[in-house]
Every structure is written in structure tokens, then in C-alpha cells.
Measured scan of single mutants.
Amino acid sequence: LQLFIKTLTGKTSTVEMEPSDTIENLKAKIQDKEGIPPDQQRLIFAGKQLEDGRTLSDYNIQKESTLHLVL
């Protein structure tokens, strides 16, 4: 599924993920695209901070969801 990652600067990146992927996997993919180390990334979806060990489906993240990346 395609996700949009929006940064505080207003920049939006697109990443392709599976519902079974963990937040950790997602942060690794963001690191590949943006060069931001996972330990500096905080991802927010629906007002919640996402935890590394959980999966996208745990948070009911659907295709074309927008996640907010806070550093």
C-alpha cells in the first residue's frame, strides 16, 4: 500500500509498504529515502505516536494514509 509521509517542512514523500510491515520497517524505508536515522523519527497517525514493534495493520493504516514525521 502507498503511504504519504509528511514532514514539518510540508514536504511529502511516498513509500510503498505492506499492511504486515512494522513501524520499524517503515522508519528504515524513510531512512533510505530521506537519510533520517530511525531513532530520530517519530511518526504520528490519527494523533497517536506509532511504536516500532507494531504493524501498520495494528494501527489500521490504510492505503494512501498520510503519516506525520516529527524529528
Score class of each variant (00 low, 15 high):
residue 1 L to C: 05
residue 1 L to P: 03
residue 1 L to E: 03
residue 1 L to D: 03
residue 1 L to W: 08
residue 1 L to I: 14
residue 1 L to V: 09
residue 1 L to T: 04
residue 2 Q to K: 15
residue 2 Q to E: 08
residue 2 Q to M: 13
residue 2 Q to C: 08
residue 2 Q to D: 05
residue 2 Q to R: 14
residue 3 L to Q: 02
residue 3 L to M: 05
residue 3 L to H: 02
residue 3 L to Y: 03
residue 3 L to I: 14
residue 4 F to Y: 13
residue 4 F to C: 05
residue 4 F to L: 09
residue 4 F to D: 03
residue 4 F to P: 02
residue 5 I to E: 02
residue 5 I to Y: 08
residue 5 I to S: 00
residue 5 I to L: 05
residue 5 I to N: 01
residue 5 I to W: 03
residue 6 K to L: 10
residue 6 K to F: 06
residue 6 K to T: 12
residue 6 K to M: 11
residue 6 K to A: 07
residue 7 T to A: 08
residue 7 T to S: 11
residue 7 T to W: 15
residue 7 T to N: 09
residue 8 L to Q: 12
residue 8 L to M: 13
residue 8 L to W: 15
residue 8 L to C: 15
residue 9 T to L: 12
residue 9 T to R: 10
residue 9 T to H: 14
residue 9 T to W: 14
residue 9 T to E: 13
residue 10 G to D: 04
residue 10 G to Q: 04
residue 10 G to H: 04
residue 10 G to A: 03
residue 10 G to Y: 03
residue 10 G to I: 03
residue 10 G to M: 03
residue 11 K to T: 10
residue 11 K to W: 12
residue 11 K to C: 10
residue 12 T to Y: 10
residue 12 T to L: 12
residue 12 T to F: 11
residue 12 T to H: 06
residue 12 T to A: 06
residue 13 S to P: 02
residue 13 S to L: 15
residue 13 S to Q: 11
residue 13 S to F: 15
residue 13 S to V: 15
residue 14 T to L: 12
residue 14 T to G: 04
residue 14 T to S: 10
residue 14 T to N: 07
residue 14 T to K: 10
residue 14 T to F: 11
residue 15 V to M: 09
residue 15 V to E: 02
residue 15 V to G: 01
residue 16 E to C: 12
residue 16 E to I: 13
residue 16 E to T: 13
residue 16 E to S: 11
residue 17 M to W: 08
residue 17 M to Y: 11
residue 17 M to D: 00
residue 18 E to F: 14
residue 18 E to V: 10
residue 18 E to S: 13
residue 18 E to L: 14
residue 18 E to H: 14
residue 18 E to A: 12
residue 19 P to K: 08
residue 19 P to Y: 10
residue 19 P to V: 08
residue 19 P to C: 06
residue 19 P to G: 08
residue 20 S to H: 13
residue 20 S to Y: 12
residue 20 S to Q: 11
residue 21 D to S: 09
residue 21 D to E: 08
residue 21 D to R: 03
residue 21 D to L: 03
residue 21 D to C: 04
residue 21 D to Q: 07
residue 22 T to S: 07
residue 22 T to A: 04
residue 22 T to L: 10
residue 22 T to M: 06
residue 22 T to E: 02
residue 23 I to N: 00
residue 23 I to E: 00
residue 23 I to T: 03
residue 23 I to D: 01
residue 23 I to S: 00
residue 23 I to K: 01
residue 24 E to P: 02
residue 24 E to R: 14
residue 24 E to C: 06
residue 24 E to W: 14
residue 24 E to I: 11
residue 24 E to F: 14
residue 24 E to M: 13
residue 25 N to P: 00
residue 25 N to M: 15
residue 25 N to H: 13
residue 25 N to I: 13
residue 25 N to S: 13
residue 25 N to Y: 13
residue 25 N to T: 13
residue 26 L to S: 00
residue 26 L to N: 00
residue 26 L to I: 07
residue 26 L to M: 04
residue 26 L to C: 00
residue 26 L to K: 00
residue 26 L to E: 01
residue 27 K to L: 04
residue 27 K to H: 02
residue 27 K to D: 00
residue 27 K to W: 03
residue 28 A to I: 13
residue 28 A to S: 10
residue 28 A to H: 12
residue 29 K to F: 06
residue 29 K to M: 09
residue 30 I to T: 01
residue 30 I to Q: 00
residue 30 I to L: 08
residue 30 I to D: 01
residue 30 I to M: 04
residue 31 Q to G: 09
residue 31 Q to P: 01
residue 31 Q to I: 03
residue 32 D to Q: 13
residue 32 D to S: 12
residue 32 D to V: 12
residue 33 K to F: 10
residue 33 K to A: 12
residue 33 K to Q: 13
residue 33 K to Y: 09
residue 33 K to R: 11
residue 34 E to M: 15
residue 34 E to H: 14
residue 34 E to N: 10
residue 34 E to K: 08
residue 34 E to G: 05
residue 35 G to H: 06
residue 35 G to F: 04
residue 35 G to A: 05
residue 35 G to K: 06
residue 36 I to E: 02
residue 36 I to C: 04
residue 36 I to M: 04
residue 36 I to K: 03
residue 37 P to M: 06
residue 37 P to Q: 06
residue 37 P to I: 04
residue 38 P to M: 15
residue 38 P to R: 14
residue 38 P to K: 15
residue 38 P to Q: 13
residue 38 P to V: 15
residue 38 P to D: 04
residue 39 D to T: 10
residue 39 D to H: 13
residue 39 D to S: 13
residue 39 D to A: 12
residue 39 D to P: 08
residue 39 D to V: 10
residue 40 Q to P: 02
residue 40 Q to V: 10
residue 40 Q to G: 05
residue 40 Q to D: 07
residue 40 Q to C: 09
residue 40 Q to N: 09
residue 40 Q to S: 08
residue 41 Q to F: 15
residue 41 Q to W: 07
residue 41 Q to K: 02
residue 41 Q to V: 10
residue 41 Q to T: 05
residue 42 R to A: 07
residue 42 R to F: 12
residue 42 R to L: 14
residue 42 R to S: 09
residue 42 R to Q: 11
residue 42 R to K: 12
residue 42 R to C: 12
residue 42 R to Y: 11
residue 43 L to P: 01
residue 43 L to G: 00
residue 43 L to K: 01
residue 43 L to V: 05
residue 43 L to W: 06
residue 44 I to M: 11
residue 44 I to Q: 05
residue 44 I to A: 04
residue 44 I to E: 08
residue 44 I to V: 08
residue 45 F to Y: 13
residue 45 F to E: 01
residue 45 F to M: 05
residue 45 F to W: 09
residue 45 F to R: 02
residue 45 F to I: 04
residue 45 F to T: 02
residue 46 A to K: 15
residue 46 A to Q: 14
residue 46 A to L: 13
residue 46 A to W: 08
residue 47 G to I: 02
residue 47 G to R: 03
residue 47 G to A: 03
residue 47 G to F: 04
residue 47 G to N: 06
residue 48 K to C: 07
residue 48 K to I: 14
residue 48 K to W: 07
residue 48 K to E: 10
residue 48 K to N: 10
residue 48 K to H: 12
residue 48 K to F: 09
residue 48 K to Q: 14
residue 48 K to M: 13
residue 49 Q to T: 14
residue 49 Q to M: 13
residue 49 Q to V: 15
residue 49 Q to N: 10
residue 49 Q to H: 11
residue 50 L to T: 02
residue 50 L to C: 01
residue 50 L to W: 00
residue 51 E to C: 08
residue 51 E to A: 07
residue 51 E to W: 05
residue 51 E to K: 08
residue 51 E to L: 10
residue 52 D to Y: 05
residue 52 D to I: 06
residue 52 D to G: 07
residue 53 G to Q: 10
residue 53 G to L: 08
residue 53 G to T: 09
residue 53 G to Y: 10
residue 54 R to Y: 14
residue 54 R to N: 10
residue 54 R to G: 06
residue 54 R to F: 13
residue 54 R to M: 13
residue 54 R to E: 04
residue 55 T to P: 06
residue 55 T to F: 08
residue 55 T to L: 10
residue 55 T to G: 03
residue 55 T to D: 03
residue 56 L to I: 09
residue 56 L to H: 00
residue 56 L to M: 06
residue 56 L to R: 00
residue 56 L to K: 00
residue 56 L to N: 01
residue 57 S to R: 11
residue 57 S to G: 09
residue 58 D to F: 14
residue 58 D to Q: 06
residue 58 D to Y: 15
residue 58 D to K: 02
residue 58 D to S: 13
residue 59 Y to F: 04
residue 59 Y to G: 00
residue 59 Y to C: 01
residue 59 Y to D: 01
residue 59 Y to L: 05
residue 59 Y to Q: 03
residue 60 N to Y: 06
residue 60 N to I: 05
residue 61 I to M: 06
residue 61 I to L: 07
residue 61 I to W: 03
residue 61 I to A: 02
residue 61 I to H: 02
residue 61 I to P: 02
residue 61 I to T: 03
residue 62 Q to F: 09
residue 62 Q to V: 13
residue 63 K to A: 15
residue 63 K to V: 07
residue 64 E to F: 15
residue 64 E to I: 05
residue 65 S to Q: 07
residue 65 S to W: 03
residue 66 T to H: 15
residue 66 T to F: 07
residue 66 T to M: 07
residue 67 L to H: 02
residue 67 L to W: 02
residue 67 L to S: 01
residue 67 L to D: 01
residue 68 H to Y: 15
residue 68 H to A: 06
residue 68 H to V: 14
residue 68 H to W: 15
residue 69 L to K: 00
residue 69 L to H: 01
residue 70 V to T: 09
residue 70 V to E: 11
residue 70 V to K: 07
residue 70 V to N: 05
residue 70 V to F: 14
residue 70 V to D: 06
residue 71 L to K: 07
residue 71 L to M: 09
residue 71 L to C: 06
residue 71 L to G: 07
residue 71 L to E: 08
residue 71 L to Q: 09
residue 71 L to V: 13
